[in-house]
């Protein structure tokens, strides 16, 4: 494969999202349907919608697609699919079926690349036990790819942004820094090892984390993507009516993240996310500027951020460490609602 997908884009992955503040503004006038069968809609800014079919089963629906963030088509397909399916896991659900969503410039990029992207998406879906049963392609430049995924969950066991309780500890399953590492890679500031580690984490399904959430009866969680650790934690705090304290020094970072950010390699998406959080966030005295910006780095296919009762967090961490998440850590705590929804320490 010689075609470099990164030549088609300026920003890729979840960095390409619309700024969160603008999105909230746009969505706030939308009329939300009032249907008792809708268990979760956009009003709590959750990862997916949930629709109750009967007392045993609720459908969980989500979609996510974005422009390339790596050079290789197969890797792009794997990452995009992992990221799309992640929203299902974040709701505590089991993914079942999916549709491909593809925008591809048939006259400008070899069709071989198209095949590679789809092959990546298909392989990852298979790993997750998801059948891709259709899709839709539009001729468009630059290319974009992702899935629309459907999963199911027991209506009483939906995990949402709103399920965090005072006293819960916040456990993060994957290291942070994909946005910064990918930006650094484009400027040739990363080592091959640093890039490989970032790609590896983006290709890792959140299925094991989701299984553990079910086993430990977790009620509040989200996955960390385009709005960054701070943006997603803020949404959780608001939806759960608590204040979340994040201890940035405990956050696991991808190798190279801190040094790149310190050198000024801070993608524009981090500034957009900062714009969004800062009216409702209290930075603690002496908070390191670099760590503050890392908290706002847009993640692609990031880890799960789950609220765990303090007496269970040790066990949860041990379980995560032995299920492919060796860097999982307690990075914060939910406390009684204060003025600010988020405290960055």
């Amino acid at each position: 494969m010689s075609f470099d997908l990164l030549t088609t884009v300026e920003t890729g992955g979840c960095s390409a999202k619309i700024p969160p503040r603008q999105l909230e503004e746009l969505l706030k006038d939308l009329h939300l349907p009032a249907d008792p069968r809708i268990l979760v809609d956009i009003s709590t800014h959750d990862d997916a919608g949930v629709y109750k079919i009967n007392d045993e089963t609720a459908l969980v629906l989500t979609t996510d697609f974005f422009p390339p963030l790596v050079s290789d088509g197969y890797d792009f397909g794997l990452i995009a699919a992992t990221n799309s399916i992640s929203d299902i896991y974040a709701m505590g659900a089991t993914p079942l079926v999916a549709l491909n969503i593809m925008m591809f410039p048939s006259s400008r990029i070899p069709m071989e690349v198209y095949r590679e992207i789809l092959r990546g998406g298909n392989d990852k879906a298979q790993e997750a036990g998801v059948s891709i049963i259709g899709g839709h392609t539009i001729d468009d430049y630059p290319p974009k790819y992702g899935l629309a995924v459907i999963g199911t969950v027991h209506p009483d066991r939906v995990i949402t942004n709103a399920g965090v309780r005072e006293g819960d500890e916040l456990v993060l399953t994957k290291p942070v820094g994909t946005g910064i590492i990918l930006a650094g890679h484009r400027l040739k500031m990363t080592t091959p090892g640093q890039l490989a580690a970032a790609v590896l984490t983006m290709k890792q399904l959140n299925n094991r984390g989701a299984e553990l959430m079910a086993r430990h009866s977790i009620r509040g969680a989200t996955d960390i993507t385009g709005f960054g650790l701070a943006g997603h934690a803020l949404k959780m705090a608001r939806a759960s009516d608590v204040t979340i304290e994040l201890y940035m020094k405990n956050v696991p970072l991808l190798d190279g993240t801190y040094s790149l950010a310190e050198q000024g390699c801070i993608p524009g998406a981090a500034f957009r996310n900062l714009d969004y959080t800062e009216g409702d966030t209290l930075p603690a005295d002496g908070l390191d500027y670099t760590l503050k910006m890392i908290a706002h780095d847009a993640q692609t296919s990031g880890g799960l951020l789950m609220a765990v009762a303090p007496e269970r967090s040790d066990k949860m961490l041990r379980d995560l460490h032995s299920s492919g998440h060796p860097e999982a850590a307690v990075i914060g705590k939910a406390v009684r609602r204060r003025e600010a929804s988020l405290i960055l320490a």
Partner: peptide
């Protein structure tokens, strides 16, 4: 240059 290169050059 595009983001974040200008910021990196500023820092440098």
């Amino acid at each position: 240059l595009t983001c974040p290169a200008p910021l990196i050059k500023t820092r440098q």
